[in-house]
Design a protein around this nucleic acid. Structure first.
Lengths: 223, 223, 223, 223
DNA sequence: CATGAATGAGTGTTCATTCAT
DNA sequence: GATGAATGAACACTCATTCAT
């Protein structure tokens, strides 16, 4: 049985924990906003503090040093990517349509956080070995969501015998390219068109002739 | 008619010009080496001077400031890319094989300068508007070499009606991905395999059914 | 006559007082350990709190600021010195042997707290005027224990007419030097040898020729 | 034979070298003044720069970091000590009078740089292992000047068989004590008296009975 | 043309101290 | 009494840039 004091201690400990978590989030959000805008190197700890409305010293209670903060921002971005793609995949049954859904989902997350994507590309190099590993791990996790769908489609005999890693990572890179080459693509295509074109192009490369007709809605002009 | 003095002046002017150019190259080479290795932010002007065996002050005679130097390095990298890809394209006749040749050429240049590729991705953002424009322009130039081949193939009725910009930029990005995701691809594929797989995948997506057989050597397992 | 309440108040007041004192001791002990190890400048208030198992804020209830804490640590060290030397002196009768006993006692206390000795030397300067005075006062107190023995020996006609302050402080400094120059002395002498040599040297300088033979046990080779 | 250019190069190189040396001295002097006054920890690099009339950055061209600067200051102090004591010793013949001269010389240097002495005591601990070694080495060097005289005196049969290291280091510590306990000694003694008293006390401890009369001028009241 | 000493604003980081709980 | 989150001034150190020589 708990004494009153223990109950109170637990309550305050829980409250403190909650505050700690929200502080972290607040700092992370401020840092993410600035770093996505300018790149981590151009963001000083002081500017993060200012943006978050706290003092510099406080950041160091939540993140050991700047590199830790940068890593947390990047990991945060990638985690959200992974979560949302996971959700997108599970909403469909047909493996080929799963591929399309995952790709679409990924493209959409990327679009909503283009700056985060670019940040991950630019600043992963500044992390230490552990940080880089963590980032790669997350990317692999996301990649596996796609690989799974590709393997399922292959097992079902719906697609040609393509190397699933080549194909899956190609899709990932394509999604990234919307952020990385936005200056070019956005000049010529809406994001929907970009997704449609690339979905068609990718599937057109792997679908078996006899199954193409089932997916003519995805193939567009390439049907 | 030229006086002797004028002749002498011209001669020295020319000599000076030559010396200026070689100094620039020397500085650029030193800067490129260091920046590709560590990223431009991690390279100090002093370290460039040391690597080039000159004084810091001298760099400022050839490049207005650090950003100028970074820009010159990146532009240098991209120019070499462009030149070498141009050479690769013109060596074949068949438009489809031109596409394959250009892609292969690009991949090879990228492979030989993976660090330069990454540098261009990481540090273009630090340039001013003019610098970024210059870089984009160069990338477009390279892209056009591919686009041209794609359009020719389409005109010849060899491929399906794919958007040539989507397809061409896709090939560029794929080549880049060898550098950008080298940690992943090199784990599973030799560079030759990487090229072969991606060539097959890309062409498989656009070749018309009736022409596929002509290019079965390029399509590999996807033939 | 005391009311029950008053009695209770006194009891709790006494209890509080006791708790206060033990808290002070606990903090002081933690601080002393750390500061003797690393020097006061290298010890943060947070690290003292951690070592004592309390919060930072609590330290400020017992010591106004860091300087107060440092001062209390140093004073504590010196007080212990004084107490222990006092005990050593009173255990002998013969004034000359008192000198030797006091010196030996002091050397032993120093040896047992070499770090404390060094701390007092290093960090007294960081104290304010009041702190420095307090420290000097304590040192004088200790010095007087020796001076007294010296004066007694002089009164008894056992030693030459040496300036007692010069002689007494010399002994103090010699004892300190075991801590201050430990890197040197410990390389060549055990602590017992150190004491023996210095006792002999010091007494040899002041003993009258006619009394030397009584103390040949203390004079060693110098007898 | 030297070309004109080579001659010019050498001239400028020499001039630069001279300027470099004087800059170092200037910075060292400024740093020494401040650090002797307040202790190295209380002196910021900025304050050294200000005192020397230069910018902070410049200090780092001459001293790798703050610790290097502190070490250079302490070493500078000790080197001067050593030099000046060396000069004092060589001016006399009689070994016993050499001891007295060296001690007197040392006391005088200490008196002229009491703050430097204290600095060496306080801040040697903040140096790294290499720095501490360098400092100890210098102290040993100075110690040897005294040891030599002591050994000579022993060889000449002028003094009792005292351990020369104990005796020599005792003299060093005594000289130091003028700086370390200046608050006490200066209250009671002029520096001359301090030297006279301690010379007498030290020699009285080691002189053989039959030689005392030769040095009655040094023994004072203890004669 | 070439040097490199000199500048000084700016960075990441620490830590004594306060105060709401 | 006791906590520890929060503050912010201070620090050591870096580096792009300038300019007298």
């Amino acid at each position: 049985m708990k004494t009153l004091q223990q109950g109170a201690d637990e309550a305050t400990a829980a409250a403190r924990d909650a505050r700690t978590k929200s502080r972290r989030k607040q700092l992370l959000a401020a840092a993410a906003r600035l770093m996505e805008e300018r790149g981590s190197q151009e963001v000083s700890m002081q500017s993060v503090a200012d943006a978050a409305g706290v003092s510099v010293g406080l950041i160091y209670r939540y993140f050991g040093n700047k590199q830790d903060l940068v890593q947390a921002v990047i990991v945060g971005v990638l985690e959200e990517f992974s979560n949302r793609v996971g959700a997108a995949v599970t909403e469909v049954e047909d493996p080929v349509r799963q591929i399309a859904a995952a790709f679409k989902g990924y493209c959409e997350v990327i679009d909503e956080n283009r700056d985060g994507t670019i940040l991950a590309y630019r600043d992963t190099k500044t992390l230490d070995a552990a940080g880089r590993s963590a980032v790669k791990e997350l990317e692999l996790t996301t990649g596996k969501l796609l690989s799974k769908a590709v393997l399922d489609a292959a097992d079902a005999g719906l697609i040609r015998p393509v190397d699933y890693r080549i194909f899956a990572f190609q899709l990932l890179m394509t999604a990234h390219s919307w952020a990385l080459k936005h200056w070019y693509f956005s000049r010529h295509f809406s994001h929907e068109d970009f997704i449609a074109h690339h979905t068609a192009l990718a599937l057109s490369g792997v679908l078996r002739p006899e199954t193409r007709s089932q997916y003519s809605d995805l193939l567009g002009d390439l049907a």
